[in-house]
Amino acid sequence: MADASPRTALDDVLDDERHRHTRFVVYSDDPPTDVEHALASRNATVARRDLPRGCRTDFVVVERDGAFAGALGLAELRHLLTPPVVRPDDPDDAAPGYRALFDVLDDTVFTALTRRSLHVVSREIEERAYRVGRGALHVTFQTERTFAAQRDVYEVLCTETALDVHLYSPDEWTIPVPAGATYHETTAACAPYWALAFRHDEHACGLLAREEPDGFRGVWTDDAETVARIAAGIECDCIARDTA
């Protein structure tokens, strides 16, 4: 059809993530609850097992592509899946289990995430990049106004760290870009995307979400390979085309 939108590299990255398989195995003798329905809506499958003898509390094992990724109490998982998702102020001070939980859940393709939640995730990625202080940070902004609200943060990132900062947007910005950052005008095909990719050998993390009628869908990940693909997708799709 003539009106079909061109397929972007970010579309491909997101589709690949959607096809990764996450399975939650719930160990409980009680009937399934809303938590299990919520898990199923996260592009995951849910299996049930009886709670083994000698185990007092219902728990959930998370498997990613067939491998053990984590385990936690069913009650704790219920708490974490209940909006709003609350994150620790300083993830470094958080219990290792809490961070591990986000490593698992964040790597899951999510559905219908709100703009507010994406802001929280974005701040987490920016803060990590700031703490690490090295590496490359690629960030898309849907509008100039979105960037304006965050400009001070990026000023600090550029002046107080050795980060290689790249900013992308379909808007033609009039606001000054912080010294040390590189601005790239993007194509309109990337306008629905909200993406951050912090590339680093040990501390990579990234977010890729697409705006759809019922909210944002996407992935938040600490997997360096996925982060690299998000960054490549941004560069591939978002570098300004020749308008001639």
Binding site: G70, L72, L74, E76, P96, G97
Partner: peptide, 10 residues
């Protein structure tokens, strides 16, 4: 993990 409200890692 369930007994201690924590998250078991790989």
């Amino acid at each position: 993990a369930a007994d201690t409200n924590s998250m078991a890692t790989p």
